[in-house]
Design a protein around this nucleic acid. Structure first.
Lengths: 304, 304
DNA sequence: ACCTGTTACGACGCGCGTAACCATT
DNA sequence: AATGGTTACGCGCGTCGTAACAGGT
């Protein structure tokens, strides 16, 4: 009889509204977000208005569409929140689903090389197994693992030796170190520093960089690691292909930090090890603790 | 016209249902949960049924009410999820609210001592300021900080020297180290080991312990730190009062690990430093990055 | 019988879409 | 005029409460 179905009083924020708000903020457009979400533009307008009324704060400036301070703050929460919401569903579904023979491995571009021997082991064990390897950007990787779109993820990053990677908290995931390699700065061959045996990161703050957050070590990471400003990007690289990035470095468009022996693909550039600060390129295998069957065997082989 | 208001397809899980599910699982009763939530028992039954239908899995065994495997898994997600949902609301609200003169400091029992000098500084600066100090268990502390029920939280834990505390991810909180002290085992005065100058944790696995997860170092933490089984509890202590715990140790009910100079309150027990593994008792100040006014000054004074 | 969870059913209100409106270029 | 966000309004579905029902002790 009472039935005041106001969701707001007891629950935090309505994720349905949150999802629309995020879409609008990302596309910087109500209409574009509406198309993406499969709603009318009017509905999205009402959703954002409802969220603003619920929170008692304006979240977006209109025309042009831009987050306010409160809106930006909400976005910080919204993305991991929606990720976990999906992760929760996927995690329960995984328990109900039968263990399948299909295996999907996700890997960030610099982590793929860590896959070699373990994959060989598993394929010897299961000869007619079809393995899918999917190369993904850093941010996408954890989302795919959490939502069970991939069974095992290989994440990478630059950290102090034997530190674990800082992964966004998308639920109870298991992460174990697989590989650590030294870091190197990629330089064009005729760069003044190309002959050096080692370089300190701090000496490169003023250089021109390529920001390749999904492929190389992100510039923000360099700044916090060096404890200094600088490391400005002249080019932003959004692909996930290492070769393309190497080519850009070779053509003199900027520097990038990668694991030292990137393999044979280093034609046209010079890699100089980073000696200071003490950082390594670390690869971790990330997967759900409830993994079973062949995927679990692969995860075990990776960590072994 | 289409209006198939099915929330499930695109959004993860409905937090409204989640909240009810958690309440039922905690109270092990639909009726008790209904009273707690302000619903009829029928409504809660329908909510859990809806959640189970949505996820395609039975979450609770009835009579007695007990989580299934899938339900337990969902609970792992649900608690931090609901926390973040509340945190998001609180965080936006904090931006809109005017900076108030009232300050609430939350602290776990072993962290209160770290408050001393910084609090004195701030009270000298603001003579007619009313400061509330609230002693909370570990799990409650982060929740209170995230939901802005307290302005600054002092969390504590046992970690390797200069490591930061592992805090549940309740959003973008700032945490800075305030204090590190050696750890000690509290022993009753006539305990065979009471005369030793130092003890190795590994040698105490078989002792009888008091599990005081909200007050002393939790036994689970000791196990992972020592990398060994054992450390079984003979008594579980649920208060947040250090004196009471000390008294229990003194009466021979079991051992506990605390920071070494716990202060003058150590009558009736003996504290022996833990020499192996290398662990310290660390206190961190945790607060929102958007803190302003007097609370921000206190946070700064704490970290200074 | 009593306690506790489920099912049936009806009412209220939220959350959409349609359509008219308004503002900015 | 065109583009894009807001407001008005009505309809449908979901959600809750009441009430009848069912399984255990």
């Amino acid at each position: 009889m009472i039935g005041l179905g106001a969701i707001s009083d007891t629950d935090g924020v309505d994720p349905h509204l949150l999802r629309s708000f995020v879409a609008v903020a990302r596309r910087r457009s109500f209409s574009a977000a509406a198309r993406e979400l499969g709603f009318t533009q009017s509905a999205v307008s009402q959703q954002v208005a409802a969220l603003e009324a619920d929170l008692g704060a304006v979240l977006l400036n209109r025309r042009p569409v831009t987050p306010t301070r409160a809106g930006a703050r909400l976005l910080d929460h919204a993305v991991p929140l929606l990720l976990r919401l999906d992760a929760a569903r996927a995690d329960v579904a995984r328990l109900a689903a039968p263990p399948s023979a299909r295996v999907v491995v996700g890997a960030s571009p610099l982590a793929v090389t860590a896959l070699g021997p373990a994959l060989a082991d598993v394929r010897r064990e299961h000869p007619d197994l079809v393995v899918t390897v999917r190369v993904l950007g850093r941010s996408a990787l954890i989302r795919e693992v959490a939502t069970a779109a991939v069974d095992v993820g290989l994440a990478d990053g630059a950290v102090a030796p034997s530190d674990s990677l800082p992964l966004p908290d998308a639920g109870p995931l298991r992460a174990v170190g697989v590989l650590e390699r030294p870091l190197a700065v990629l330089l064009p061959p005729r760069h003044p520093l190309a002959g050096r045996a080692g370089l300190r990161l701090a000496d490169l703050a003023a250089a021109g960089w390529i920001d390749a957050p999904d492929t190389a070590v992100p510039l923000g990471r360099l700044r916090t690691a060096a404890g200094a400003e600088g490391y400005r990007a002249s080019v932003r690289y959004e692909g996930t292909d290492v070769g393309g990035l190497v080519a850009l470095v070779g053509a003199g468009h900027g520097l990038a930090v990668l694991p030292d022996p990137t393999g044979a693909a280093l034609s046209g550039v010079t890699a100089v090890p980073v000696t200071e600060p003490r950082l390594v390129h670390r690869v971790e295998a990330v997967h759900s603790p409830t993994l079973a069957g062949v995927p679990a065997a692969l995860a075990a082989a990776l960590t072994g």
